[in-house]
């Protein structure tokens, strides 16, 4: 049987435990035995994207120690998964490091590519706008980016279409960045906020009741704006929707 390790990004562990719980339960309900290594912290991306790769090395080493013995590492974050895959060249390419980089999967790509999920027992009777987080979209290629002249596809949409009762709303700009960007969200506060407001307006214009994404960091940023605006629109990670049932 395959050994699956669950990686929960640091800020999800601290601020959005319900997203991690939904991810775990979703995988368990699909018959996967999941282990959560208790000594995990962070993939190292916040430091590395800020230009401080050196300061990310210890976190990256710890990540490899925690996860190298799994066949698959699954994470409810496209951004963190991409970081492990793409930027762990800060570590010596030992067999453990190479294995971790090859075996890291973002949740929706794991469900579609490895588990080959065709149906889900999920029910979510709301109007949902899907936010295509950039690192998942253009980094992991979870879907087709609008810049490219290639066939249309989207792994997250494939999964959302399996949910009963859901109504996915179209967007004017289906894959524009939300403006989070890690430290960008504070060092370029004005632009970050403006980008977020513009994304929300697009979802709102199309009647979305819930904004979902495969990355909680984008949603944390949008949620911050929505709550400040007293908007009725909610944010939910895609795992929460895929794990939602009638009861």
């Amino acid at each position: 049987m395959m050994k699956v390790g669950l990686f929960i990004p640091c800020y999800v562990d601290q601020f959005y435990p319900q997203v991690a719980i939904a991810t775990l339960k979703l995988l368990e309900n699909l018959g996967v035995t999941v282990e959560y290594p208790l000594q995990q912290t962070c993939c190292g991306q916040p430091m590395a994207n800020a230009g401080c790769e050196e300061d990310s090395v210890q976190a990256a080493r710890l990540f490899v120690r925690n996860f190298h013995h799994f066949d698959y590492i699954v994470s409810p974050s496209g951004s963190c998964s991409l970081h492990v895959e793409e930027h762990y060249d800060v570590l010596d390419p030992t067999p453990e490091v190479q294995k971790v980089r090859a075996n890291i999967y973002e949740l929706t790509e794991f469900l579609i590519d490895i588990l080959q999920v065709k149906t889900l027992d999920a029910y979510f009777p709301y109007k949902v706008g899907y936010h295509a987080s950039c690192h998942g979209l253009r980094g992991l290629r979870l879907g087709h980016a609008s810049e490219l002249n290639r066939p249309d596809f989207s792994k997250p949409h494939q999964l959302l279409h399996m949910v009963k009762g859901i109504e996915l709303v179209p967007l004017d700009r289906p894959d524009e960045c939300c403006g989070f960007g890690g430290t960008f969200s504070v060092s370029e506060e004005a632009i970050s906020v403006k980008m977020g407001k513009d994304r929300i307006a697009d979802h709102s214009r199309h009647g979305a009741e819930v904004i979902t994404a495969a990355d909680m960091s984008c949603l944390m940023h949008l949620e911050g704006l929505l709550r400040r605006q007293n908007s009725p629109i909610k944010v939910m990670h895609i795992a929460e929707i895929l794990n939602a049932t009638q009861n």
Partner: peptide, 14 residues
């Protein structure tokens, strides 16, 4: 300045 902080939950996922 323009965003709320995420509401802190009582317990972490851990």
């Amino acid at each position: 300045k323009a965003r709320e902080m995420p509401p802190p939950p009582a317990q972490s996922f851990h």
